[in-house]
Design a protein around this nucleic acid. Structure first.
Length: 828
RNA sequence: GCCGAAGUGGCGGAACAGGCAGACGCGCACGACUCAAAAUCGUGUACCCUCGGGUAUGUGGGUUCGAUUCCCACCUUCGGCACCA
């Protein structure tokens, strides 16, 4: 590119050095490393293991720059750990089931499996071009029967241990296409089908669930985990624990209606009950006079999403059922309404309404002219009058108008009310969680079949473990017919009962792909193992995962599911320990050059293949590590990457191009000091995921070495040490150029099996330090002193400074603060 | 609305435990090399200035000898949740 082509005469000139050609050295070393199985660790009880895991990609087509951004620092850190002497396992695979494959199949009339495996072939090739230290022996593909065999096996174990069950649950359904839709297939405010535009309805289907809510409390515990605070907060909010009371109201006919409240102290203020439109008791409670109106209301609610129903800005709607319930503490008869602001998916699907002290109930009561009863008196506030209130007062306070509990002060009201309802047998204190059980049924083709058979005689029969996997049939009609392809595959669907041998029918739903990704880190350990999901010997050595890296978009779903999965498997006797991943770190996102999210429609997508052919993988790696704080991400810059190209070219010439002369010992000592200071810094940065400063430190050291080289340092003992340490520090970031230069300097293959150098603290020590001198906190002078200088001496030197005396203007000194090794501050 | 993260030169970012703000890189300017350009190398580059200094880390307060860093309030951007009873 930049240099003149070498002539034959140049080639034999010892001072002429070859060009840096990443396009030649990178494939060469990648092939060599693969042949030599450089990154394939075996279990070694003598060595401390380190399981570095990066989130497995979905094979959507091409490797995205985002994959590079996520994986490069993860790889660099795995390499760093390997050089530190750990036995490092860094596997990779593909999360290969999912809806995009089915969409592509419909669009291009190609089998989802064919599409997926073609993408995997391409992406595998692209992944290898990054020069990552993946152990490809361990590669898994979640759509492979050899993998989903064990996904199904896990389902069976959960079923056996009562952690899987069936219940009716609504799905979005297109009445025109006669098919269920995934959330992303429903578009627009009117929630229409993406294919035909018909507004969707909600339809109840019998579906499979895992009992995640059994683990809600345990999932709130992060003891011993080094996870980002924000991820833990997101998960805690998602789990949504609230402390309150469950209270049983009875209808006039005597049917119990259970409600959950966080404010048992407001029980005497309940003036109506509200049921969700889907609540099972609605039908029974509704009087004949109200039945038409109620049915109409339920019907319109079916067409709305929870999001729409929950929109706060919306006016409250509801209808009266005609039925009444009895307030268990006051004995008052209160009306029962149906209202869509009550969600079937939270609590019990029924609420006790306290308009005076809950804003939603207040709005509803005003809308429908229902009574408002004040039962809380906040300290120091005027007594509330229902007629004059313009909003609910949700503050706590002492209880009033509350029978025997009237006068209970604020601090005791929650406990007193809870105790009271328990005493009179109408309820008790309880905890409620927002976290639902995990719905794993998908009315889709491209997933692992749920290994269940329905038999007329035996009922629900799991396919026995020794008959797994239930293979996904290939010969299906995946074109849009309005039905799940598996339902139409009659020879697959109709089978015999594994129990009694009579005709039976298979479950035609497949499993949520989050199932596949909940345990892939275990299959990596022994991808060909046939006796179980993983080889216990491998498990005992490698688990748990030491560092898990990936995108924060998985902070909630995937990371809760995989934690649940581990705990559930533990309780089935399969896994050990309470948590699968000890340390978690999330990277940010690479944005387009315009600062917006990359997307094809915006035309701001950066293609990594182009970058590699233009700059080489090492430059792309270096730039991705350098350009922003990893956890932040930021916009791509096509000029910025040039800086990293220049840097690597400078490294190449710096180490290979000889120069002559003899350097001053002081120059050599300074270079050596900088070398060891940089080593200390970079070691710290690798440990702490501060990747961008690793590259800038390397640049700084190169600048220092350049100055030393100009002063004649090349070829000295100190120079050779600096070059050696430099390449070792460079190796995790830019593995190819480091290996090439390592070889050219005549060092033993491979640099990636070398040890991480040790800091020589003596060499890193400063001979002299600069103290800053402040007057009233303002910088006035700097003085160069011995590192061990006493406070008194430092103070004396500071006061002797001319500029300091000038700044003092003869004012009397009040105080002198000396921070050893840093500064002297004179306060006047 | 609630929860979380972040706001530093023209740009990306640095400042490890409260102590020299702007490391490193991009961009830009000037110079060297060149017939010329590219590449490369060198120098400079926050702002104001009366050349002594003054002002600057989203805004306004506070704590402190000293605040980009800690506390309070507010503004903006991004992400998550969104009538959660």
């Amino acid at each position: 590119m930049s240099e003149q082509p070498k002539t034959g005469a140049d080639m034999i000139d010892p001072t002429s050095i070859p060009m840096y050609k990443p396009e030649e050295i990178e494939p060469k070393w990648q092939a060599r490393w693969e042949t030599d199985r450089l990154y394939q660790p075996d279990r070694d009880p003598e060595k401390t293991k380190f399981y570095a895991l990066t989130m497995l990609p979905y094979p959507s087509g091409d490797l995205h720059i985002g994959h590079w951004y996520a994986m490069t620092p993860s790889d660099a850190r795995a390499r760093f750990k390997r050089m530190q002497g750990y036995n490092v396992f860094f596997p990779i695979g593909f999360d290969a089931f999912g809806l995009p494959a089915e969409n592509a199949a419909i669009k291009h009339n190609i089998h989802p499996g064919k599409w997926t495996y073609a993408n995997i072939d391409r992406m595998r090739h692209q992944l290898k071009s990054m020069g990552n230290s993946f152990d490809w022996r361990s590669e898994i593909i979640s759509a492979d029967p050899k993998y989903y065999h064990w996904t199904q096996w896990f389902f069976n174990q959960f079923y056996k241990n009562n952690l899987a069950y069936q219940k009716f649950s609504p799905v979005d359904f297109c009445p025109s296409c006669n098919t269920t839709l995934a959330r992303e297939q429903v578009h627009g405010d009117d929630r229409h089908c993406e294919r035909c535009g018909t507004p969707v309805i909600r339809k109840d289907l019998k579906q499979w669930f895992f009992r995640t809510s059994n683990y809600a409390e345990e999932l709130l515990n992060y003891d011993g985990l080094d996870w980002p605070e924000f991820v833990k907060t997101l998960q805690r909010n998602w789990i949504g624990k609230s402390r309150g009371a469950s209270v049983i109201f009875k209808t006039e006919a005597g049917d119990p209606i259970e409600v959950f409240t966080t404010r048992p102290d407001t029980l005497w203020g309940v003036t109506y009950l509200a049921l969700s439109p889907e609540h099972p008791l609605v039908e029974k409670i509704t009087t004949p006079a109200q039945i038409d109106e109620v049915r109409q209301y339920q019907e319109q609610a079916r067409h709305q999403s929870d999001i729409q129903r929950e929109s706060v800005s919306r006016e409250k709607t509801g209808v009266f059922t005609g039925g009444y319930a009895v307030n268990p503490v006051s004995g008052e008869h209160i009306p029962i309404w149906v209202a869509d602001y009550v969600l079937m998916s939270y609590g019990t699907g029924a609420i006790m309404a306290v308009p005076a002290h809950d804003q939603r109930d207040f709005e509803f009561a005003r809308q429908f002219d229902l009574p408002i009863k004040v039962v809380i008196h906040s300290n120091g506030q005027e007594l509330l009058s229902p007629e004059e209130m313009t909003e609910a007062v949700e503050a706590h306070g002492s209880m009033i108008n509350s029978g025997r509990l009237t006068g209970t002060p604020e601090e005791e009201s929650f406990e007193a009310a809870s105790r009271y309802i328990e005493e009179i047998g109408v309820g008790k204190e309880s905890i409620n969680y927002r976290l639902h059980d995990w719905l794993i049924s998908r009315q889709r083709y491209w997933g692992a079949p749920i290994p269940i058979v329905y038999c007329q005689h035996c009922g629900v029969v799991p396919v026995p473990d020794d008959q797994l996997p239930v293979l996904l049939p290939d010969d299906v009609e995946w074109l849009p017919t309005g039905e799940s392809p598996l339902k139409l595959h009659l020879t697959w669907r109709f089978t015999t009962c594994p129990n009694c041998g009579e005709p039976a029918e298979r479950e035609t739903d497949t499993m949520d792909t989050f199932m596949d990704s909940s345990w892939y880190h275990l299959r990596y350990l022994s991808p060909d193992y046939a006796e179980g999901p993983f080889d216990p010997a491998q498990y005992n050595y490698w688990m748990p995962v030491d560092t898990y890296t990936g995108g924060s978009e998985h902070a909630i779903m995937h990371l809760i599911y995989t934690r649940f999965f581990h705990k559930a498997a533990r309780d089935c006797g399969i896994t050990k320990g309470d948590e699968p991943m000890l340390q978690l770190r999330n990277q940010g996102m690479v944005l387009g050059e315009d600062g917006e999210k990359m997307s094809k429609s915006r035309g701001n997508v950066v293609n990594p293949d182009d970058l590699v052919s233009r700059y080489g993988a090492d430059t792309v790696r270096a730039y991705l590590i350098f350009f922003s704080r990893w956890e932040m991400g930021g916009p791509w810059s096509s000029t910025g990457i040039e800086g990293n190209t220049r840097w690597l070219r400078r490294v190449w010439h710096m180490l290979l191009e000889p120069s002559f002369g003899e350097a001053d010992p002081e120059v050599l000592r300074a270079m050596r000091r900088k070398t060891h200071q940089t080593l200390r810094r970079i070691t710290y940065d690798f440990e702490n995921f501060e990747f961008n400063t690793i590259v800038s430190s390397l640049m700084e050291l190169l600048n220092e070495m350049g100055r030393a080289k100009n002063a004649g340092a090349f070829g000295s003992e100190e120079w050779n040490e600096a070059a050696d340490i430099y390449l070792r520090m460079l190796a995790p970031v830019c593995p190819h150029i480091a290996e090439e230069l390592w070889e050219r300097l005549g060092k033993p293959y491979s640099i990636h099996t070398q040890s991480w150098p040790r800091v020589d603290e003596e060499a890193a020590k400063e001979d002299m330090i600069t103290l800053i001198v402040q007057v009233n906190g303002k910088l006035r002078d700097r003085i160069v002193v011995e590192p061990g200088i006493s406070n008194e001496e430092a103070e004396k030197l500071a006061l002797a400074s001319e500029t300091v005396q000038q700044a003092l203007e003869g004012r009397p000194i009040r105080k002198v603060i000396v921070v050893p090794g840093r500064l002297v501050n004179i306060v006047v």
